[in-house]
């Protein structure tokens, strides 16, 4: 698989996961893009929503950047964790 195709898959999976999370939190009016900051004025996730995101990512990919002690600040930084290989055996579910 070409590197950029894989990158898009990972990024779009993460964007979908976050959109679903926001929908559950009745915040579906918020637009999710790669450069959206996760907290504050961006997606505005609180600590519990961040924990949910961490758990859902772990379910999806087997590992997650928050659990690994990293504190990604944007959606792109979450994706980078998987793309750059920190998420060692991460693969996108078919």
């Amino acid at each position: 698989m070409e590197a950029h195709t894989k990158m898009n898959d990972v990024q779009s999976t993460i964007v979908t996961v976050i959109e679903q999370l926001l929908e559950r939190s009745n915040k579906s009016d918020i637009q999710v893009s790669l450069d959206s900051p996760i907290h504050g004025d961006g997606l505005g996730l609180d600590s519990l929503e961040t924990a949910e995101l961490s758990a859902i990512l772990e379910d999806e990919f087997g590992t997650d950047p928050f659990g690994a002690g990293l504190m990604p600040e944007t959606v792109a930084e979450i994706a980078d964790y998987y793309i750059e290989g920190d998420g060692s055996n991460a693969s996108v579910p078919a």
Partner: peptide, 8 residues
């Protein structure tokens, strides 16, 4: 708890 949070 992480699992329960994922399904709320």
């Amino acid at each position: 708890v992480r699992n329960m949070l994922a399904h709320r």
